[in-house]
């Protein structure tokens, strides 16, 4: 199962620091996210792209995790050589992540891309 099937995300930038919010569509999936989507895992996923550390802030009331990644924007938005200096596309890149859910994922998660109206 891909992260994109249970969560949406947005990237922000400040200097050379990128933050990605990952927000579960449904409360039950937030528990899964909180368990498996660790700062270490996000750091490993992005590899050389992130030269500094990754910190994670949890917001259970919003079913959201916020990842703060130091040294992730090629020296900073205003001087980066990257085509996407803001790292806007990092959120979509992260949503490609395959989640090993350990059999705890809700059965209906995969086909239900669209969040229910009363979702998280």
């Amino acid at each position: 199962m891909k992260l994109r099937e249970i969560a949406h995300a947005r990237t922000g930038d400040k200097g050379d620091v990128s933050n990605i919010s990952v927000i579960a569509y449904r409360a039950e999936d937030y528990r899964l996210l909180h368990a498996v989507l660790t700062a270490e895992r996000v750091r490993a996923y992005f590899g050389d792209t992130v030269r500094g550390g990754v910190r994670r802030h949890a917001l259970p009331a919003l079913c959201a995790l916020n990842f703060v990644m130091d040294g992730a924007l090629g020296g900073g938005v205003t001087r980066s050589l990257a085509l996407d200096p803001h790292g806007k596309s990092l959120s979509s890149s992260l949503l490609d992540m395959e989640l090993d859910d350990g059999g705890t994922a809700p059965q209906a998660a995969a086909p239900e891309l669209r969040p229910p109206a009363s979702g998280c």
Partner: peptide, 12 residues
């Protein structure tokens, strides 16, 4: 929710 965390580091 997406905008609440946009360009935010520690939300507290």
């Amino acid at each position: 929710t997406e905008q609440l965390l946009y360009e935010v580091h520690d939300p507290a």
